[in-house]
Design a protein around this nucleic acid. Structure first.
Lengths: 337, 337
DNA sequence: GGCGTCCCTCAAATCGATTCGACCTGACCG
DNA sequence: CGGTCAGGTCGAATCGATTTGAGGGACGCC
């Protein structure tokens, strides 16, 4: 048995001839290689990384940002012989707080993409199980690894860009505020109930630049249609803003579409900026002014954090830089009449 | 130990008080529930379904069709306590034919989405391991379960719709033809080298309607930009077609965008039809004429096929119906001058 | 008191691979 | 010819749970 084991795993000294003899015998006996379950039990490793995709899968997968990070992650994990197990995030508040997979599935490390609200019950479940955890875009905690970007600085740069163009009436369209994901103008007292870390940080970037938005519009998800709704509302109301800083590219492109529908020229009548740095072919010929984040690299950084855990290192915290890309959707502020 | 096992699994007679005692003791000892690996080994089941997403993840995930099917699948698998392990498909021809995960990962059933070319090496690997397999949109084989839709009939209906509107010069834009995914006009001799089942079937639908396309344009993937390229090429050449039947909605929407760019009116100058029945908000105000396939239901059918395997039933074959949805992108053929 | 039912304890087998040490065999070298 | 070493065989322990069967209190009921 020891020899057979060596023949398959290749770890340890074994003559090529013996190896072949073992393999032939295996074929004759219809033995198709070691049973992964036995191997995993012995090794104490499953080779599986559980990835919680922020939302219901449908919503998460409609978001190119998650997709590209996931892609980068899988590319990094593949060579390490690690597989990705999809775990649905908490979709409806009526059901159980965490997916049963999170409690029972075999996994060596967990990754929480789009990392959640501050008091995430998922973190508790993982801590209880003793599963090392990597948090993407969440609030760093002492015992979990984090990967994030400079949301706050990026948004500040984008806002400053608008200021330099002479804009003074700047509105902003944000990612979801909280678990109930309500849509619409945010009254100032709700700013305290903002438990979605990423939204908070990007919002802080705007105020960091010294701007008090003329309006803050929260959306239920980062989707074009919600951007459109926001754009229509903000641009057809009184005291029209001359610039709208959006917290994602999908929202921003929705706002651009809304402006076009309302007969407004971009950027002559209204400037629009985004966040993420996606390719948006259907916006042609416009190119969105946006804060570019390194998505594939972010996925790779998550993979690295996973690898670190598996090699025994402690949790790491990593923040990736962002850059401002100036496109055709921002321009000098119009004369306010 | 037996009692402890019963306390956690709940299978078998156990008094509530004892159960609580066990749970308390577990908490005191920092025991966080049964180790999944031990359980899996004993049970002989991993509770994992390996899902091969057609392409590289990035490409697969940019395709809303795969996403929605995957979403339907996960929704069905969740209640069965099954998890989805992502397995990248064969992306580059230089690398290994199948991902190592497919050979070594623990999984009870495998699903091949967007089910591949006729001579798929992945099927061979799975057969060798004895893993039951569900094929989505592939060529049914005796020992694998299949889930598909009536591609051929659907495309036939769409083509007949164009015929009824008086079109005679009908071109078609197809999904990839083969593994090398070349882009452009397809010479007639390449029709024999079509080893992508889904492309073949949808193409057959066109000829079933009695139409010989004036041009067949193959794309490298189902993406808006490839549709745009195809549209520009087909619509700016000589002998412009008056209708273009596309094999996917994303391709069709690219063609619509191309037509708009070229100053052609849709549907007055050119009619465009798609396939899949996606929501395409950015195409507004147009609504694509398309063949609607039940995507979530397809995912559920795959989940059912998986469940069937696990309950000991043999492979099943299922074909779901499609319906033609008439939108605003098809209209009467213009007078040919 | 006798009997049956519940529920618990205890011991042991099993799932399938990995890994360790002891031991044996040739081959090769000095 | 003795010593070393690479490589192979053999036996046994281990990973952690599930499951089965035998046995034994406790309790209620007649």
């Amino acid at each position: 048995m020891s020899t057979a084991s060596l023949a398959f795993s290749g770890a340890g000294p074994i003559a090529a001839a013996t190896r072949q003899r073992v393999l032939d015998a295996a074929a004759a006996l219809d033995y198709s290689g070691p049973n992964p379950l036995g191997r995993q039990l012995r090794r104490g490793r499953s080779g599986i990384v559980g990835v919680v995709v922020g939302d219901s899968l449908r919503r998460a997968f409609r978001d190119p940002v998650s997709i590209q990070v996931l892609d980068g992650l899988v590319s990094t994990l593949g060579p390490l012989d690690l597989g990705v197990l999809l775990i649905p995030g908490s979709s409806d508040p009526s059901g159980p707080a965490v997916d049963p997979l999170l409690e029972t599935a075999a996994m060596d490390v967990a990754v929480i993409m789009w990392g959640g609200t501050t008091d995430d019950p998922m973190l508790g479940a993982l801590r209880r199980r003793g599963t090392p955890t990597v948090l993407v875009e969440g609030q760093p905690a002492p015992d979990v690894a984090s990967v994030g970007i400079d949301d706050r600085g990026g948004m500040r740069r984008a806002t400053e860009h608008l200021l330099e163009l002479g804009h003074t009436r700047i509105a902003t369209v944000t990612l979801p505020f909280d678990r109930c994901r309500s849509e619409g103008l945010v009254p100032s007292d709700r700013l305290d109930h903002l438990d979605w870390e990423i939204t908070r940080r990007r919002l802080s970037g705007v105020t960091d630049a010294g701007v008090t938005p003329t309006a803050i519009w929260a959306t239920p998800a980062s989707l074009v249609e919600h951007g459109r709704t926001a754009g229509v509302a903000l641009l057809s109301g009184p005291e029209r803003p001359t610039a709208i800083a959006c917290q994602s590219d999908l929202l921003a492109s929705g706002v651009v579409l809304a402006a076009r529908e309302l007969g407004l020229r971009v950027p002559e009548d209204v400037s629009v900026s985004g966040f993420d740095g996606l390719d948006l072919p259907w916006l042609a010929p416009d190119v969105l002014t946006t804060v570019v984040q390194p998505l594939a690299e972010k996925g790779a950084a998550v993979g690295q954090a996973v690898a670190d855990f598996l090699s025994g290192a402690g949790p790491s915290v990593r923040e990736l830089p962002v850059t401002l890309r100036i496109g055709t959707t921002t321009g000098p502020a119009p004369d306010v009449s």
